[in-house]
Computed example of a mutant assay.
Amino acid sequence: MKEIIAVIRMNMVNQTKNALALEGFPAFTCTKVFGRGKKPVNDQVPEESFLMNSNIPAEVAESISEKHRLLPKRLLSITVPDKDVDRVVNTIIEINQTSNPGDGKIFVLSVGEAVRVRTGETGEQAII
């Protein structure tokens, strides 16, 4: 079994959810998260422009000009049998890939064990 963790744009959750459901993977966990990649967020707007414009509140100018601020994202977690990993990963990529920075990241981790609390089923039976 594998756990697939995907960090995606906020506005892509419903499209991703629908695509995964169509592929036969309707069950997953989604969490609101904040993060950033290695590229500065706002290279194109110099901070001096905010200092010169008195119409912008200081809090807004600071949050916009901060190069290392955290951006809102969504974290999806889905556990699947090994044979389904490529289908899930490819579905997530297909829906979320815009070829622009910030499209997200996908991590695939091994899962040692799973237990369904309601029935006590273990292993793959607990996740299918």
Score class of each variant (00 low, 15 high):
residue 54 S to Y: 06
residue 60 V to G: 01
residue 98 T to H: 11
residue 23 E to C: 07
residue 43 D to N: 11
residue 33 V to R: 05
residue 4 I to P: 03
residue 44 Q to D: 14
residue 3 E to F: 01
residue 79 T to R: 12
residue 11 N to T: 09
residue 69 R to G: 11
residue 107 F to V: 01
residue 53 N to E: 13
residue 102 G to Y: 08
residue 54 S to E: 14
residue 4 I to V: 11
residue 55 N to C: 08
residue 111 V to N: 03
residue 61 A to H: 09
residue 92 I to H: 02
residue 71 L to D: 06
residue 37 G to M: 07
residue 50 F to R: 06
residue 61 A to C: 05
residue 35 G to C: 07
residue 92 I to L: 10
residue 115 V to W: 09
residue 39 K to V: 12
residue 50 F to K: 03
residue 73 K to E: 12
residue 89 V to A: 08
residue 107 F to Q: 01
residue 66 E to M: 10
residue 50 F to Y: 15
residue 76 L to W: 08
residue 78 I to N: 03
residue 10 M to G: 12
residue 89 V to E: 02
residue 110 S to P: 12
residue 76 L to H: 05
residue 107 F to R: 02
residue 62 E to W: 00
residue 62 E to L: 08
residue 120 G to I: 02
residue 29 T to V: 09
residue 33 V to P: 06
residue 40 P to F: 05
residue 64 I to S: 01
residue 16 T to D: 02
residue 32 K to N: 15
residue 30 C to F: 00
residue 35 G to D: 04
residue 77 S to L: 12
residue 12 M to Q: 13
residue 53 N to I: 03
residue 101 P to Y: 10
residue 18 N to A: 10
residue 105 K to N: 02
residue 95 I to T: 15
residue 71 L to P: 01
residue 88 V to K: 06
residue 14 N to F: 07
residue 78 I to C: 03
residue 21 A to L: 03
residue 62 E to K: 15
residue 115 V to D: 05
residue 37 G to N: 04
residue 122 T to A: 07
residue 19 A to Q: 10
residue 103 D to T: 04
residue 66 E to V: 00
residue 3 E to D: 06
residue 94 E to P: 00
residue 32 K to M: 01
residue 76 L to R: 03
residue 103 D to L: 02
residue 78 I to W: 06
residue 59 E to K: 12
residue 36 R to Y: 04
residue 117 V to P: 02
residue 55 N to D: 14
residue 67 K to I: 08
residue 126 A to R: 01
residue 15 Q to L: 08
residue 84 D to H: 15
residue 88 V to S: 05
residue 60 V to L: 14
residue 35 G to V: 04
residue 91 T to D: 04
residue 104 G to I: 09
residue 8 I to L: 08
residue 1 M to H: 08
residue 41 V to W: 08
residue 59 E to R: 12
residue 68 H to N: 15
residue 15 Q to V: 00
residue 50 F to A: 04
residue 42 N to Y: 11
residue 19 A to Y: 02
residue 36 R to Q: 15
residue 17 K to N: 08
residue 49 S to V: 14
residue 20 L to S: 08
residue 96 N to Q: 01
residue 85 V to K: 14
residue 54 S to Q: 11
residue 8 I to D: 03
residue 125 Q to W: 00
residue 95 I to W: 04
residue 60 V to D: 05
residue 29 T to H: 06
residue 119 T to E: 02
residue 63 S to T: 09
residue 49 S to W: 14
residue 70 L to M: 15
residue 7 V to P: 00
residue 27 A to T: 12
residue 33 V to L: 06
residue 83 K to A: 12
residue 45 V to F: 13
residue 24 G to A: 08
residue 27 A to R: 10
residue 23 E to F: 00
residue 8 I to W: 11
residue 80 V to W: 02
residue 88 V to H: 05
residue 41 V to A: 10
residue 14 N to Q: 15
residue 15 Q to A: 15
residue 63 S to M: 12
residue 89 V to M: 07
residue 40 P to D: 04
residue 3 E to Y: 00
residue 68 H to D: 13
residue 35 G to F: 05
residue 35 G to S: 06
residue 110 S to K: 15
residue 26 P to M: 08
residue 49 S to F: 13
residue 3 E to G: 00
residue 97 Q to S: 12
residue 79 T to E: 10
residue 3 E to L: 15
residue 64 I to G: 03
residue 44 Q to K: 15
residue 110 S to E: 15
residue 59 E to G: 00
residue 82 D to P: 01
residue 52 M to Y: 04
residue 75 L to G: 00
residue 49 S to P: 00
residue 106 I to D: 02
residue 63 S to F: 04
residue 91 T to A: 05
residue 62 E to R: 13
residue 44 Q to S: 14
residue 7 V to F: 13
residue 27 A to Y: 14
residue 84 D to Y: 14
